[in-house]
């Protein structure tokens, strides 16, 4: 389309030159004046703030100057909404704060981090029931894994390690791969094995300090602050689903591997440190309870290339997992153990 534009462009086939590209972006961008006119707020203030924000981004204006300039006007225009919403520029002296402390103290808006902004949005969405996938609180989480669909790619194992940031030697989900028969009549079964979240969990039965317990939502929890690391639960688990955290880490492979940890069971424990729980504790799959609580699927379910894994509410007879678990292809691992897993498999 841009052959005519010049000889330089012609030497690089099918790549338009930069000016043309910029023009295309400008054509697509909505007109700010029109957009702001659709709101009940002042268009001129919005335009001025946006222009100056661009200057802040370019480094032509400091964050301090920007907020000092607009603080009063914004407060007058947005009122309580401005005063009560945490300003992401002010992270309570955290790493992401972009203005000086003096400026931050003089501003009329409340203080908070990006994380707290995201949380408040999530909780509002939950409270108002706007997001249809946010949990109501009466679920019993379960999982159904279709063995006909599993291709044994191990991506669930990888997604689980990435999501839960588990250390070396700890893998909440593994895929047990077995070959049967003799060449050329060989078949292969791949059985992914997360924690079964048993209805009658032997691990809960044996824990001397009740550090591991069954929650109302069906998840078997581990309280890392109570666990003494006796490993009796690992002896008792018929599925080998529990792992001891020996304190190893991926520092040699990944810089800052322990800086962020997963908020397992909804508890954010900060960076991974020697001698601090969960080091020295027993760990296992939590069915990504922290994700379920946000209305998201467990990482293994989300990533599964063959759509072999399903997670959802077993208390809801209409849910996909309930219907699959009722199917005549459905079975549980080691049914004779009496553990009654909440993870079902389809033959």
């Amino acid at each position: 389309m841009s052959r005519a534009d010049g000889s330089e462009a012609a030497s690089v086939p099918s790549v338009p030159d930069a000016d043309v590209l910029d023009g295309m972006v400008d054509d697509e961008a909505p007109d700010p004046r029109e957009e702001l006119a659709k709101t009940e707020y002042r268009t001129d203030l919005g335009l001025a703030m946006a222009e100056d924000a661009k200057r802040v981004a370019k480094g032509e204006l400091s964050g301090d100057a920007y907020w000092e300039k607009y603080d009063e006007a914004a407060e007058a225009e947005f009122g309580d909404d401005y005063r009560e919403t945490p300003n992401p520029a002010i992270d309570a002296d955290g790493a992401r704060q972009t203005v000086s402390r003096e400026t931050a103290e003089n501003l009329g808006c409340s203080v908070g981090s990006m994380a707290s902004v995201a949380e408040s949005m999530a909780s509002e969405a939950g409270a108002e029931g706007e997001a249809g996938d946010a949990p109501a609180g009466d679920e019993k989480w379960g999982m159904v894994i279709d063995l006909q669909k599993c291709v044994g790619c191990d991506s669930c194992t990888v997604a689980c390690k990435a999501e839960n940031r588990t250390p070396p030697g700890v893998s909440y989900n593994v895929v047990m791969e077995e070959e049967h028969g003799e060449f050329p009549n060989v078949t292969r079964t791949n059985v992914p094995r997360p924690c079964m979240q048993c209805e009658n969990p032997p691990c809960v039965q044996v824990c001397p300090v009740s550090a591991t317990y069954k929650m109302d939502n069906g998840v078997v929890n581990v309280d890392y602050d109570r666990c003494i690391g006796c490993r009796y639960c690992m002896i008792a688990c018929p599925y080998g689903a529990r792992y001891f955290d020996f304190g190893d880490n991926y520092d040699d492979e990944v810089i800052g591997s322990g800086e962020v940890t997963s908020p397992e069971y909804g508890v954010d424990r900060g960076p991974r440190e020697d001698g601090k729980s969960p080091v020295g504790n027993v760990r296992k799959c939590s069915m990504c309870m922290h994700r379920l609580n946000r209305g998201e699927e467990p990482a293994c379910v989300e990533t599964c290339v063959g759509d072999a894994r399903n997670a959802g509410d077993l208390n809801d007879p209409e849910s996909e997992v309930s219907e699959l678990a009722e199917s005549n292809r459905s079975f549980q691992l080691k049914e004779s153990e009496g553990t009654d897993p909440n993870v079902y498999y389809l033959k």
Binding site: V204, Q205, V206, C207, P208, V209, S210, A211, R226, C227, I228, G229, C230, R231, F244, D245, S277, G280, N281, V282
Partner: peptide, 15 residues
């Protein structure tokens, strides 16, 4: 014990 510092827990929490 994986957490030797918590050796008193069995006397605080039971099962």
């Amino acid at each position: 014990l994986g957490r030797m510092d918590r050796m008193y827990h069995p006397f605080l929490y039971r099962q």
